[in-house]
Design a protein around this nucleic acid. Sequence first.
DNA 1: TCCCTTATCTACTCATGAGTAAGGTTACGA
DNA 2: TCGTAACCTTACTCATGAGTAGATAAGGGA
Lengths: 205, 205
Amino acid sequence: MSPPSPQPPRRRLPRQVREQQLLDAAVAVFSRHGFHLASMDDIAEAAGVSKPMIYAYLGAKDNLFIACIRRETQRLMDVISAAVPAGLAPEDRLYRGLLAFFEFIAEHRDGWIVLYRQARVHGTFAGEISAARERTIVMVAGLLASSSSDEAHARALPIAHALVGAAEALSDWGLEHPEETPDALVTRLMDVIWIGLGQGSHVKH
Amino acid sequence: MSPPSPQPPRRRLPRQVREQQLLDAAVAVFSRHGFHLASMDDIAEAAGVSKPMIYAYLGAKDNLFIACIRRETQRLMDVISAAVPAGLAPEDRLYRGLLAFFEFIAEHRDGWIVLYRQARVHGTFAGEISAARERTIVMVAGLLASSSSDEAHARALPIAHALVGAAEALSDWGLEHPEETPDALVTRLMDVIWIGLGQGSHVKH
DNA sequence: TCCCTTATCTACTCATGAGTAAGGTTACGA
DNA sequence: TCGTAACCTTACTCATGAGTAGATAAGGGA
């Protein structure tokens, strides 16, 4: 009998590469199982590496999770910022921002939404997310307010909250309907918030 | 010196009363710490009772959590159903439904939203919540669709998702702004979804 | 060729918290 | 008054999983 194949050959990789692999694995596992049910062993296994590596590179579980959140929020922010150039009409800016958002979600299918919701729930990480979320909402409020006065902004804030909530919920729905393009999602949402349901006989058919 | 008061006199209570106390305590603790960080000991202590009581009355942790969700969703459903009598115009039905929702949240301040989000996140309980949530959404879609044809209903569904998401997000915002009455919240939301932001110069000031 | 730094592993420790066994105590009915 | 059933407790067991100590190997530079 052949001796049990001694070791699967350990490939040494430069730190930065391994780190990204670890984050990829962590995002996947956290999304699937949730923060608490995801064990460090699971993540290590998913990354094809042993547990102490994670501690060496990304630190304890909390840190690892925060690192995931940071990387993913940053990606989302970058995508949206890039999609909304200054100097467009509010309607267009809103449209493009929403489109970028829905496209991002569609690309990250499983990962993003779940990870995001995880983070909102646990008090430990809520700060991390609410900061990013709050920035988004303020930005959206900026798009909505016609004048740049403080008062206009204050009036727009709760509406921005509602709008962001609507976009999140709609992207949830979109995940269950893969045939729905991001563009179609934006149109649905814009129809409601820009035109309003009161026009004509509610939802047209 | 007085001998240490031997025991705080144990009050024996009938099962049904104790059960409700346990659920109250569980909702409070789950809301504050989240499902996983809430220990059965915490809950027992909050209820002023020892751990095995929980197991005797409500069963294991999962069961206890589901019992919390069931009781609280039922309460919300009851409140909303009662607030939306048949035979009103869609706009009024929508208005009253939303009002009931915001009022419920305001009354349950800490408890509801957090508990609810918990449940949405964990795969184990997601089914429990999505059923209730789906029912709500279908109901809202019914309010929105002008005709009762299947097609009209299908068109209204994603909008209902967005609307429910918006209401949830707005109630989050409302919790941070206690001076905001439920009625004011409904008005803000109705202004957006019924009239639309495109009218006039976006958000008025 | 031989270091020596960096990457990586195996094999633990130890706290926490779910769940339980077995027994004490109170109230109510006969 | 005396059971007896329902209520309630103390004091455990035991699995799980976070985090770590210490050894091993790979590969680039001298």
